[in-house]
Design a protein around this nucleic acid. Structure first.
Length: 445
RNA sequence: GUGAAAGUAGCUCAGGUGGUUAGAGCACUGGAUUGUGGAUCCAGGGGUCGGGGGUUCGAGUCCCCUCUUUCACCCCA
């Protein structure tokens, strides 16, 4: 019986593994460049940890298991709860702000579809522990900057992607001002989040079901269509709460401008983010065509640590999965030309059948033996070196050297009797006869 | 969890209305080629046609079930 890979999982053969490593290495490099430190946690946690902030409907989308001691566990569907747990555990001894990143392997028992699998990788960055408004606005901006920094680094421009920024704080202030009761906000968020995915009429119908007053519906729709922060006052009369949310948004935008991100972001109040624990700035990165689901998303969370039994400390963060990103990068043809090529420093070959004068009690030394000896010596000296197991014709061996993308080829032939090697440059095709001892002293220099 | 389409070699796909031993290109292995490279030519390996059941003298082809994939819905932490 043939065994198939499990639904929603991927096998990484060397070519796919090269892409995965390239993506993850890029994430890590940009994180470090932006001052983040790497952390990680276990791949499974107590099931109840994921129930705290998410509720039971999420549990159905978890891979859960019971260990032999009867503990209810789950494979992690996200790493934020682990982060909250880890930070809480050492909250008093960690210097603030905490700037951490991670690239966890995550699992969700959903029906797979485009850009969404059951096992994937997700880049997470978080900044935790800032107290004043200025610092928080800087942290919010830095999270967005780091996100764009990576996307820019792999060759995506403002013509390919856009960061859509909104604010939960502004949204709630405006909705309350319009007349939506506070207890209705959470369920309304879930609907508003779907706006982009629903036909206009359907969205309006659902909105009318939730908000009974037609005037309120009209004003909510008007707010969702707002293109500029300064236009908010045209939709609702400002109050203290709205003003303070607008100030926060203003500081964020100022910082983004200073960081040189003009052309990469826009204000879009229709960005709401699903369930989540967001309380301030929220953002999503989308492709310009708008065909794909969000490439990345994040925002400010003020109560997360507290919900996990910690102090009231605010944080801000971002998550970017590898699936949608790879689809977009492939569409833009940005992967193949940037993949680091596998390459060798040396490939050692011999003229088959060449033998040398006997210099010990061993059997007569052959070219093949010398290939193994010289390759091992090169490897010991720290070079990437390889040779052919098959010792076919010289042409075959050279072909293999070419296929393995070697820089130089060392040919061992009859001239080795006079302690000489032929060193051939694979790229230019040039070759020279080099004295054996000189070859090695040149390498060491 | 719901709905739709698809599944033939490692990959991309041929195989009118059921009919001999299921094919091609690419890829892979070997040879032509015993001191110099991606070419060319020749040969070879590789398939329970996703799996199971049924109809039939006979099923890759028709019917049912199931698995997987893709797409849409649900959901999106």
């Amino acid at each position: 019986m043939k065994i198939q890979p499990v639904k929603g999982t991927r096998d990484f053969y060397p070519p796919e593994m090269a892409v995965r490593n390239w993506i993850i290495d890029g994430w890590k490099k940009v994180s470090v460049c932006n001052g983040f430190e790497e952390y990680d946690g276990p791949i499974f946690e107590y099931l109840k940890m994921f129930q705290i902030k998410s509720g039971d409907e999420i549990v159905e989308q978890l891979f859960s298991l019971q260990d032999r001691g009867g503990r209810d566990l789950a494979l992690r569907p996200e790493i934020t709860p682990t982060l909250a747990r880890m930070v809480n555990q050492r909250i008093n001894s960690l210097p603030k702000p905490i700037k951490w990143f991670s690239v966890p392997r995550l699992f969700r028992a959903e029906r797979p579809q485009k850009g969404r699998l059951r096992e994937f990788f997700q880049w997470n960055i978080d900044i935790i522990g800032l107290e004043d408004e200025t610092g928080k606005a800087l942290a919010d901006a830095e999270v967005i900057f780091t996100t764009v920094d990576y996307l820019r680094d792999v060759g995506l421009s403002g013509a390919d992607i856009q960061v859509k920024i909104s604010s939960r704080r502004l949204l709630s202030a405006v909705l309350k001002r319009i007349g939506v009761p506070e207890e209705r906000l959470d369920s309304l968020y879930i609907l508003l989040d779907k706006k982009a995915r629903l036909p206009k009429e359907t969205f309006r119908e659902l909105l009318n079901e939730q908000v009974l007053n037609p005037q309120h519906v009209e004003r909510i729709e008007a707010f969702m269509e707002t293109k500029k922060v300064s236009d908010v006052k045209k939709v609702v009369q400002l109050d203290d709460e709205i003003n303070s949310a607008l100030d926060e948004q203003g500081m964020l935008v100022d910082n983004l401008r200073r960081m040189g991100l003009s052309g990469y972001y826009c204000f879009d109040p229709s960005i709401v983010r699903g369930l989540a624990y967001y309380t301030g700035m929220i953002f999503e990165v989308h492709d310009m065509v708008g065909e794909l689901r969000a490439i990345a998303g994040g925002g400010r969370y003020d109560n997360l640590l507290k919900e996990f039994g910690g102090p009231e400390i605010s944080g801000t963060g971002m998550g970017m999965g590898d699936c949608v990103l790879e689809i977009l990068l492939r569409e833009k043809d940005l992967i193949d030309k940037q993949l680091p090529k596998k390459c060798l420093d040396f490939f050692v070959v011999c003229v088959p059948g060449t033998n040398f004068e006997q210099d010990s009690e061993d059997r007569e030394p052959m070219g093949e033996d010398e290939v193994v000896r010289q390759t091992a010596k090169l490897r010991e000296a720290g070079y990437r070196a390889n040779f052919s197991y098959k010792f076919g014709s010289l042409g075959k061996q050279l072909r293999e050297a070419y296929d393995q993308n070697a820089q130089k080829c060392i040919i061992i032939g009859e001239e080795f009797r006079d302690r000489q090697l032929v060193v051939k440059d694979i790229v230019t095709g040039e070759q020279e006869l080099v004295d054996y001892d000189e070859f090695w002293s040149r390498l060491k220099a």
